[in-house]
């Protein structure tokens, strides 16, 4: 054992210096040292960590993506809900079930912006036939054209804009014939599904006038559910309108050309019952 040459313990007290010297003079167990080194070599080389610059760039990139997604969702849900503009209520050619779309909210493929933020919306998208509370229309517009014994009724249901799938139901007269639909499922109920972004349904059906007390009779029952607005228009040839009865009697009646138009407008509060029109023509005529 070579003599120990103190280098750093000159400032130690005597008792402490001897103890430190005793520790430093202890011989190293070389076999244990070799075992330890060999064992430590068994570890696989560590992978160098990513550079901090890359980490910061990735963090910035992910933050930018998250911010853009959040802004998109907020912008989508922050749009004011405005009433759809009044457009031409003339039914399209072909007279069939039509689901039209608003010019301001065109139908687009379903995307993240359409779905919203709730996971339940995904389920609704995947299960469009899943029963859920029927959507309530806000406005109902009915336009009826009478020609002899046949009535052609054009109906428009207007809903509040929504970014989710909704279902609607409409009760048809028993003898209604909807072109393009062989039979209304569920009896007289016409049912359909509104894709996200679509807020308007138009359809047209034809029916033969019923005979009541030896007279033709057209009747339109007023809906019982709450509506923001209801508009009813009945057009009939002036030659056919002579001596006809229209109920309720407070309807606006005016002649435009060779046709007579009956108009009714109701707000949220409206009378119950039905709108009736009884032309003077006799069935035998």
């Amino acid at each position: 054992m070579p003599p120990f040459v103190p280098t750093s313990d000159h400032d130690l007290p005597d008792a402490l210096r001897e103890a430190v010297a005793a520790i430093r003079q202890e011989p190293l167990p070389m076999e244990a040292l070799r075992r330890s080194v060999e064992r430590a070599k068994q570890l696989s080389p560590p992978q160098p960590p990513l550079r901090s610059g890359w980490t910061a760039r990735w963090a910035l990139l992910w933050a930018a993506v998250a911010a853009s997604l959040l802004l998109g969702v907020l912008w989508r849900h922050g749009q004011p809900v405005s009433a759809p503009p009044a457009n031409d209520l003339t039914p399209r050619e072909g007279g069939q079930l039509m689901v039209s779309q608003l010019p301001v909210v065109p139908t687009r493929p379903i995307s993240m912006r359409e779905i919203g933020t709730q996971w339940a919306d995904w389920e609704r998208i995947r299960l469009p036939c899943d029963p859920k509370p029927a959507s309530q229309p806000l406005w109902l517009t009915v336009r009826v054209q009478l020609e002899q014994q046949q009535a052609t009724t054009s109906v428009e249901l207007r809903f509040a804009p929504a970014a989710e799938v909704r279902e609607f139901e409409y009760g048809l007269p028993p003898d209604a014939i909807v072109q393009g639909v062989e039979s209304a499922p569920g009896g007289n109920l016409l049912r359909g599904t509104l894709p996200p972004g679509v807020d308007r349904v138009q359809f047209r059906y034809q029916q033969q006038l019923a005979i009541h007390d030896k007279r033709y009779h057209y009747s339109f029952p007023l809906p019982e559910q709450r509506l923001e607005g209801f508009y009813f228009l009945l057009e009939v040839p002036a030659s056919q309108d002579r001596g006809a009865i229209f109920l309720p009697e407070n309807a606006a009646c005016r002649q435009v050309g060779n046709r007579v138009r009956y108009e009714l407008r109701f707000g949220p509060v409206r009378p119950s019952g039905a709108i009736s029109y009884l032309p003077l023509i006799h069935p035998l005529e």
Binding site: I23, R24, E26, L28, P29, A32, L33, S36, V37, A40, K41, L43, S44, P45, P46
Partner: peptide
């Protein structure tokens, strides 16, 4: 890693041993 352990292993052992 082998070189690292070979170079600094004795130093680590000595520090712990003392």
């Amino acid at each position: 890693w082998d070189r690292l352990v070979r170079d600094y292993g004795p130093m680590v052992f000595r520090t712990a041993w003392r």
